[in-house]
């Protein structure tokens, strides 16, 4: 924690943001999966702060990427609408219950779901 606010720490934050930006723009998501470990491991943020801060960093990146996808034909806003409504509700719940969630369990369940997705995309 003593590193917080120093120049090298700022550089790590910038590097972490850049890495998350590459992933988030290229895959249209997943930036948080790169950003959270970097914020926690290199920028001296506690685990829970790393998660919450990543949401604040990723949001503007998604706004810019969504604009680019839209201009280049990779986005149909009408198809997105129901997901936006669901996401709004889920986000509200997520923000409120965040304090009570076990981080370890969350990671385990999440890992299995992600591996299932990898299987579907690759096999």
């Amino acid at each position: 924690m003593s590193k917080r606010g120093t120049e090298s720490n700022k550089l790590w934050c910038a590097a972490a943001g850049g890495a998350a930006g590459l992933v988030n723009g290229f895959f249209g998501g997943g930036g948080g999966m790169v950003l959270v470990p970097l914020l926690a491991g290199k920028c001296g943020l506690g685990q829970r702060r790393a998660f919450a801060t990543s949401v604040a960093v990723i949001a503007p990146l998604c706004a810019l990427s969504a604009g680019i996808y839209y201009l280049r034909g990779g986005l149909d806003p009408a198809a997105a609408l129901p997901y936006l409504i669901g996401g709004l509700v889920g986000g509200l719940v997520g923000g409120r219950v965040f304090r009570q969630v076990s981080m370890v369990m969350l990671r385990r369940v999440f890992a299995l779901l992600i591996l299932y997705g990898a299987y579907k995309a690759l096999v």
Binding site: N24, G28, Y69, A80, Y83, G87, L88, G90, G91, F98
Partner: peptide, 14 residues
């Protein structure tokens, strides 16, 4: 594209 747009209200709510 859908996923990027979806994150905006979701993050905004959280």
């Amino acid at each position: 594209g859908v996923n990027l747009l979806y994150f905006l209200p979701t993050a905004g709510a959280a």
